[in-house]
Every structure is written in C-alpha cells, then in structure tokens.
Computed example of a mutant assay.
Amino acid sequence: MNRKGEYGKLVRDRIPQIIREDGAEPVTYIAGSEEYRNRLRDKLGEEVREFLEAEDAKAPEELADVLEVVHALAADLGVEAGQLEKIREAKASERGGFVDRIIWTGNR
C-alpha cells in the first residue's frame, strides 16, 4: 500500500510484458496525472532506500534506478534531461558539488 492507502505500485513499462512471458497475466491500469506524480515520488523513496541498503557491488545498479525515476519526475514536470543537467551544473557552479568531501559541523 502506498502513502495514500492505494494498492499497487508504479512499475517499469516492460514489467507487464515480462510477467506475461513468465506465464502469468498482470492486472494493471494507467494512472492519471496526479496519481502518476504521487506514485513517482513513492517510487523515488523506494529506489533511494534500495540504494542505501545495497552493497557496493550492487549500488551502481540501484543508483541507476534512482536516476531513472528522477528523469521520469523531471519529464512529468516538463523538464528535459538536458535542462535538468543544466540546472544541476548551475547549482554546482554557484554552490559547489560534493567532490571535496567537506563536512560542516556548525559555526563559531
């Protein structure tokens, strides 16, 4: 059950086909726009949790799943992947990235 008490979860587009190829018949429906955005947010949390729990060998695959959901969320917001990357670059230019591994512990 998701955060709104609804059953089911958002799955990748080919999952119903894969289920059929395995001999079962999936029960699906197409989400409306509001539900889709909410389900994407739920999926992002799910994929981030899976990344956080993954061992190093599996972490890149889980991180790619996070990125897939981020791209879907951006598209749903009307932002293309290239545009999202430009936004990320601008923020990195203004505030920096995380390459230097700086940990802030407060001010004096």
Rank of each mutant, 00 (worst) to 15 (best):
E55Q: 08
E94Y: 10
A24N: 10
E35I: 01
F51Y: 15
A75E: 14
Q17M: 08
R49Y: 04
G96C: 11
Q17G: 12
L77C: 14
V66P: 02
Y36A: 13
I30V: 15
E47W: 09
R101W: 00
V27M: 06
L84M: 10
L40G: 09
L73E: 13
I18R: 08
F51M: 06
S93K: 15
L44R: 01
K58I: 03
E35D: 13
L52Y: 07
D100N: 14
T105P: 00
K86L: 09
D56I: 04
I103Y: 13
E85P: 00
P60F: 05
I19E: 08
M1P: 10
M1N: 02
V69I: 15
R39I: 11
R88W: 00
P16F: 05
R95G: 01
R3E: 03
A64L: 05
G97E: 07
G45Y: 03
V69S: 09
R41S: 12
K58W: 05
G45W: 06
V79Y: 00
E50A: 05
A92P: 06
E55C: 03
G96V: 10
D22Q: 15
M1H: 09
E21S: 06
E61V: 08
N38D: 14
I103V: 15
V66E: 04
F98G: 08
K86M: 15
A59H: 01
K58A: 15
